[in-house]
Amino acid sequence: MIKKISKIPFKGTPEQEAELKKVIEDNLGDPGAVMPVLQGAQDIYGYLPIEVQKIVADGLGMPLEEVYGVATFYSQFALSPKGEYAISVCLGTACYVKGAAKILETLSEQLGIGAEECTDDGKFSISACRCIGACGLAPVMTINDEVYGRLETKDVEGILKQYK
C-alpha cells in the first residue's frame, strides 16, 4: 500500500521543534540514527509530515528522499495526522480470524483512505492496531474512546454516520 500524503496544514509548535532537535542531537553520529529519530518525531508530532522530515534530514545531514524512503518502508510511520475521530481497527489474532481485515477494507472504501491515513478534512483517520484486550468482542474497533465489538461489515456505514 502506498501511503497517502496528508494535505492537512502542518500545525507544529516551536516547542515541538526544540524537542525534535534534542532527539536528533542525542542520536547524531549513530549510523542508524534515522529510525530512532523518526520514532521520536512521530511521538512528538503524531505523524511525519514533510516539515518534520526536513528537520530530520537537515539535522542528520542526509537526503530528504532517504528519510522519506524509510518513513514509507515501515508501516508504523504515518504521513497523516490522527483525525478528529481516530478509528483503530484491531488486527490482533482473534479479531483477525473473525474478519477484521474485511472491516478495515470496508472503512477504507467508505472513507477513501487507507490505514495510517487521514481524510482531507481532518475528520477521520484509520489506524491498524494490535490486540486491545477485547478478544471476546472480536472483531473490534474503537473510535476515540468508544468501543465497537462483534462487528460485521454491514455495521460500518451506520457507525460512521453517527460521526459525520
Binding site: I2, P63, F73
Partner: peptide, 8 residues
Amino acid sequence: GVIGANAR
C-alpha cells in the same frame, strides 16, 4: 540524493 526507493 533526490531519488530513492519509496514504499515497500
